[in-house]
Amino acid sequence: MENVEKQLREEAKRLLADKKVDVIVGYEEGTLPLQTVPCFITNPDDAGKLVWNSFCSQNLAKYVHDIIHQHRESQVRVKPEDKTRKVVGVVARGCTTRSLVIHLQERQYDRDEVVIIGVPCTGFVAKRKVSTLVDGKEILEAAVNGDKISVRTTSGDKDVPLKDVIADNCLNCHFNNPVISDIMVGNEAPPRDVDREYDSVNKFENLPLEERWSYFTKEMEKCIRCYACRNTCPSCYCKICFVEQSQPAWVGTGDDPTDVQVFQIMRMFHMAGRCVDCGSCVEVCPMGVDLRNFLKKLDKDGFELFAHKAGESIDKPAPLSTFEMGDKEKFIFEPESSS
């Protein structure tokens, strides 16, 4: 991984020095253990700040979208001949590249506005998993050593197998290597345990309705509606989210359980065919809401009904924005019989 980091810094520096990109979006060290921070590098001399390790948890595609769109907005009142473009370089692992593909398919920006530095991925560390393994004690230091992670807590040191703390979405990931890139760094990452991808969904699906509903309501009760899940999600880029619209107000602003559930249900359904299972929404949630279980079900449906994996390939159209003659229509005309 150190080698990847070295190459990454060199490529970033070169891209900036050659003026191929205006900014590089990557990760840098944070102020807390187990944490890296999204960073925005414009000066080639700062490329040395970039890191690539098991603590790079966030999907950076969100920032690519934001930067390009903010720039475009700033250009609205500029004379046509003076308009500029902003080219964003981004450090992208598999799921990040899938989000970029979704953006491109949804015509959010042009292919030449983004330079993709692909990195192989072995999964990121889920902070909550580490915290649970050390009984919630404060983690003062953490370092990955081979297949272990050494953690120093207030009550002593502990070595934890890395595989026990890798985020759930990474464990069964099909796309730990970029699906699209301009520059690749490092060697291809070995495949993950992909056969068990839908194990947890299958198990959940088979529970009685009441149990599934009570699990859903229990998880939603934790939600404080800080919108961290929505705001970190690269697929959540609506200019004005439906929860913030007031004419009409689709959903109440308070903490009424129904309103919280409606927010989450609507957001999740908007993810149908668009969720790349990057795990960012789960990782950023301050309350530990299990959103993945539900999102993964939508992903499974997309796969089973349309053989579709979100953002898998730029040439493969998204099922919900495509019509094909062979598409199932029974659910429209005979909803009772198809359920």
């Binding site: 921070v37 999204p38 960073c39 925005f40 969100k62 920032y63 404080i224 509606r225 800080c226 919108y227 961290a228 929505r230 705001n231 970190t232 107000a249 109440g252 602003t253 308070g254 950023v284 301050p286």
Partner: peptide
């Protein structure tokens, strides 16, 4: 602010943040 997600985690978990909104439902 560049990396800020514009979520409410900091302000909602904060013991002293007290800004509020009033609306009719």
């Amino acid at each position: 602010h560049q990396s800020c997600l514009a979520c409410g985690t900091c302000t909602y978990l904060c013991p002293t943040c007290h800004c509020f909104d009033i609306s009719d439902e």
